[in-house]
Amino acid sequence: MPKFFLNKRLIILLVSLMVLVALIGFSLKDRSELTWMEKFVKDTVVFMQSIVHKPAQLVAGFFENVNDLRHTYEENKRLKAHLEQYVLLQSEVESLKKENERLRELLEKKESLRDFLAIQATVIGRNPDRWKETLIVNKGSQHGVEKNMAVITPQGLIGKVRSVSPFSATVQLLSAKDRQNRISAFIQGDENVFGLIEGYDEEREALLLKRIPYDAKIKKGQRVFTSGLGGIFPKGLFIGEVEEVVADEYGLTQIAYVKPAANFYDIDDVIIVKRKIDMVQEEEEQ
């Protein structure tokens, strides 16, 4: 017995194992904020990374450009066809917008869940560990970013802010496995059907939209948007299209597989979204 305790290396190993377990437990706890040490370290590394990132991106961008050039002709043809539809659509949007404003004034309802402020951010890193898909972006609490804000690309929703430090933030992608990754969403149709995005099917590469009422009729190809009911997300951010609908294990609700519209790889710039209605409330509180 005394010999066992005299073995210094073994004791060091055991102590560090205990510290390891304690630290993992600490970091798994649902923390609302990082410690100031973590924030400081993170910002320092992100600052250095943003210096190295520029030349690296230039080199990678060159190869991408060469690749793009090869497909230019076909793409051009396709885009020209789109352009004509686009003009029509734009005039329609314009008139609808005006009508919406007028009706809003009539109702004296100024703010809406749909309005949001956009914070542009550049992605300067990704988790190299690749177990949890997260991005590091170069905007932080100094620029108004807060935890749990929605993050989008022009194609659609990609995730939410996981943690913030003064000059950087970590974005958790929708494809990351996290039980707290719940997003209130609705399926657009003649009658909007509400549900919750809970989880991601890695094999099918589709999001799971759960808790849809069993009698709701949903077709393949219907579009899914955020509902804005969950708290911090604004309404109407595009998530994706329904791929398939199945009954859940008890048959009480339905589950829809939603193909995300945004590409979770190859993301260079993102938009962090701040809901306007919250800002109005904050001002009133002050």
Binding site: S16, L17, V19, L20, V21, A22, L23, I24, F26, S27, L28, M37, E38, V41, K42, V45, V46, G125, N127, P128, D129, W131, K132, T134, I136, R162, S163, T170
Partner: peptide, 16 residues
């Protein structure tokens, strides 16, 4: 430690 703090946010794993 840097790897844990900056990238994975699971403290301890790589530090150990």
């Amino acid at each position: 430690l840097l790897y844990d703090v900056v990238y994975t946010e699971i403290l301890g794993a790589y530090t150990f």
